[in-house]
């Protein structure tokens, strides 16, 4: 019961109050780059969620059963980035071979993910927060769902912006960032909701 409550807290904190994009600033590049259309936002969001969850599941045993016993925890950054790169490559090859239809819609986003700081960020956060295996996976899943949610919401915001009359100086990136600021502000409204529901 305690574990279930704990997992729910991690899940809702990751999605709402400590959203990866709006609160922790992970993955701003795809957030600004790919959120132009809802299709792109959904594809990128799903791909990030998959890779984040998968690489958390892979990095956890490597850290705790290989790096820790050998006393070389300081190599975690080097090690994790290689694992992530290899993981992304493997997923890409598997999709290409066995699920070509999915590869067609997600394939473009996969290479972009290796250098996405959300993925490396979540694996390092799992270690820093001393999460267990299940907690790590739920944390990555929550981060991914939160990422997807914000990408989709923000793609809607951007479609509205593209039809608006924007002052000349603010055209392009500045207005996008200011819109992101307002979106981020609206998520501040969720603060405290997790404690309220689960009695933190």
């Amino acid at each position: 019961m305690e574990l279930a409550r704990n997992l729910m807290v991690i899940l809702f904190t990751g999605i709402l109050t400590e959203n990866f994009i709006l609160n922790k600033f992970y993955g701003i590049c795809p957030f600004l780059g790919v959120s132009k259309t809802t299709d792109g936002a959904v594809g990128m969001g799903i791909a990030v969620t998959l890779v984040m969850t998968g690489s958390s599941a892979v990095t956890y045993p490597i850290y705790h059963y290989v790096l820790e016993p050998l006393g070389i925890e300081y190599l975690k950054t080097v090690c994790f980035i290689l694992i992530i790169a290899a993981f992304v490559q493997t997923v890409e090859m598997i999709l290409k071979k066995y699920v070509p239809s999915l590869y067609k819609s997600l394939g473009v986003y996969l290479p972009l993910i290796t250098t996405n700081c959300a993925v490396l960020g979540v694996t390092i956060l799992n270690i820093d927060n001393e999460f267990g295996f299940v907690e790590s996976i739920v944390n990555a899943l929550a981060g991914g769902i939160g990422f997807l949610l914000v990408m989709v919401i923000f793609s809607g915001v951007r479609e509205r912006i593209s039809r608006c009359n924007v002052p000349k100086a603010l055209e392009g990136t500045p207005i996008t960032l200011i819109a992101a600021s307002v979106t981020s502000l609206s998520f501040v409204g969720f603060s405290g909701i997790v404690d309220g529901i689960f009695g933190g």
Binding site: G33, L170, P174, I175, I178, A180, S181
Partner: peptide, 30 residues
């Protein structure tokens, strides 16, 4: 609000806009 995440997005947006006006060059998209 300025040290909250929302302020970060807002400030960066404004700084990029001001730099664009000063250098008379629109920031490239991505």
């Amino acid at each position: 609000i300025f040290i909250l995440p929302a302020g970060g997005f807002f400030t960066l947006g404004c700084v990029i806009a001001v730099l664009g006006v000063i250098t008379k060059k629109k920031p490239r998209k991505i």
